[in-house]
Design a protein around this nucleic acid. Sequence first.
DNA 1: CATTTGTTTTGGAACAGTTTCATTTAACCC
DNA 2: GGGTTAAATGAAACTGTTCCAAAACAAATG
Lengths: 341, 341
Amino acid sequence: MASVRDIAKQAGVSTATVSRVLNNQPSVSEAVKRRVLTAVNETGYVQSIGRRSTGNIAYVYTDDSSLGSPFDAAVMTGLSSGLESSGYDLMVLHARHSRHPEETFGQMFLRKGVAGAIIRTTVSTRHVCESIAQEGFPAVVVGDRFEEGSAHHVEFESREASREAVSHLLDQGHRRIAMCTNVVDDTDHVDRVAGYMDAMRERGLEPDHQHVIRVPANRLGGEQLVRRVLTMKDRPTALFVADPFTCIGVFKEARAQGIDIPNDLSVIGFDDSDLRYSVYPVMSSVCQDAGKLGREAYTLLQQLMGEDAPPNQATEPRNCRLRAWFEVHGSTAPYPLDSTE
Amino acid sequence: MASVRDIAKQAGVSTATVSRVLNNQPSVSEAVKRRVLTAVNETGYVQSIGRRSTGNIAYVYTDDSSLGSPFDAAVMTGLSSGLESSGYDLMVLHARHSRHPEETFGQMFLRKGVAGAIIRTTVSTRHVCESIAQEGFPAVVVGDRFEEGSAHHVEFESREASREAVSHLLDQGHRRIAMCTNVVDDTDHVDRVAGYMDAMRERGLEPDHQHVIRVPANRLGGEQLVRRVLTMKDRPTALFVADPFTCIGVFKEARAQGIDIPNDLSVIGFDDSDLRYSVYPVMSSVCQDAGKLGREAYTLLQQLMGEDAPPNQATEPRNCRLRAWFEVHGSTAPYPLDSTE
DNA sequence: CATTTGTTTTGGAACAGTTTCATTTAACCC
DNA sequence: GGGTTAAATGAAACTGTTCCAAAACAAATG
């Protein structure tokens, strides 16, 4: 295992200078800095103060916004409940800000005493995960899937539950069912659209492309969605909305516009937590247990940390899929409404 | 500054043994452990590897439930935004589970490389904060106030905004105004009740004690509240609800019971984040910026860490109060309703 | 009771990385 | 060029941790 002294020797400088480079202190010339960093990379240096072993698990968020959402909160809660009995501590890191320039993720993690990482990603930050996975550092990705198997990940399987949800609407007589998805193609949103398509085609219905509507996955997107649906000429009688916050916006704007859910419009939403119970009528939803996702991610991470992975080499990816499920509540009604009621 | 070697000399043991005690490793006799710990306390030892100062800030939660709420999420987001530019990393610890038996909080923090702590408390875990404050370890409490000045804290001043809110209702003609507060007396809830009392007495109205209603501060509490209010004989015409989740429950159950907000019942709620926009009509609320609370807590903590506080001795408490403000939206209407509209 | 055996406890030394202080090197300005 | 200032660097001293062997203790056995 290379130490600062080895690097110092190889780069022809003192250990003090190596330390300065490693801690990004000023007053090191560019030339020396570059020489040290190449030596660091060649030797595959990892920090170990004293001989202390690393004792932290990192929750790495890659996007500025992804720390305050209920999904993240639930994942972190699940994670920390798993950590409690383990002796590891939880550390929250930002992928971009925590890392020094030219430093690999593995080096950054070891510098901070991190033994394994849970990476929270979005579709726009997938490359970060892939680069971590390539280094062979124990890491599990949550929040997005990696088809090519380039990274270990824990994900939800929501296609089947989405199919069931849309089937339920079809069973109730709805035919003009609009599907609402995010403006960017997160893999889980893609799944939900696929589930919608499955259900439609199962009945021999070719889904109208007009009926797949994209709005931002937040409350304002939901409000926008309702206004768009109201002005469509073949107005949908039911909505399948692939995001929890969008649903909240839908319920609010529907109320504002005097649309009665479920009598004027049936809505099936999505729920990570217990948001479905916060609206009236309680929202029929495809549900996912984000807390469980956190716990499972930690379980998988434990396995990865247990094996002494060869450094700088990715191991065969191991994944875990949690099933989403469909719950019928009060926001769906048969169509056409039985007027005798 | 005392080092392990000083402690070793004072306790008459080797540095290896001191290190073992500090890291709570087994295979140290009780007698020696006690001797080392007294030496640690007498010298006011602080860890510094190499000569590096410790590099983590801890977010300490004292209650199992308090990690997933939007309030916590917002505080953590604010906190981590302040941390980004500072070089510190964020660590999440549980007060009870992270600490070894017989270990002081200061020792626990130092063992984990924590330079300062943000403590999230509830009324039931105040003693934890006081005990940390007594040790003189840099720590700032969020979520509750400490009248006696025993701990540094950052809090919201919501009494005045609450008074304004209730005054607004009185201006609109309401006289039977019910106040809803938590079943346990969190200091901020106490403030809000005080603001309610202020407004009533300002007009020479002696508040009816029947009108101060206690329900659990969550959605179900809000639902319960509505059902209770409906069965009161002098039914209130307006509600002032001191908790965001309770409000959500109120809006939901009101809708379920066919109560029209604001025409049948005016409601003023509370909002930590942007929950007020997720209901229809948008909720008139007393608002607090939880993210700012996190940032201010970090600013205060920075000050505390900057001063070399005398070890094991609490410094003069320094506090920060953030003003809550009142926002009028759509959930309030004059009483009696002007029927010409 | 003496002896052996095994476990627990302890210290010495080697090692990890960081920082202070003095020295060297470079730059700059008359 | 000479003198001054600032930047860059290294030797040494310092931090805490862990390996390894020795010591102390306990327990079983002859």
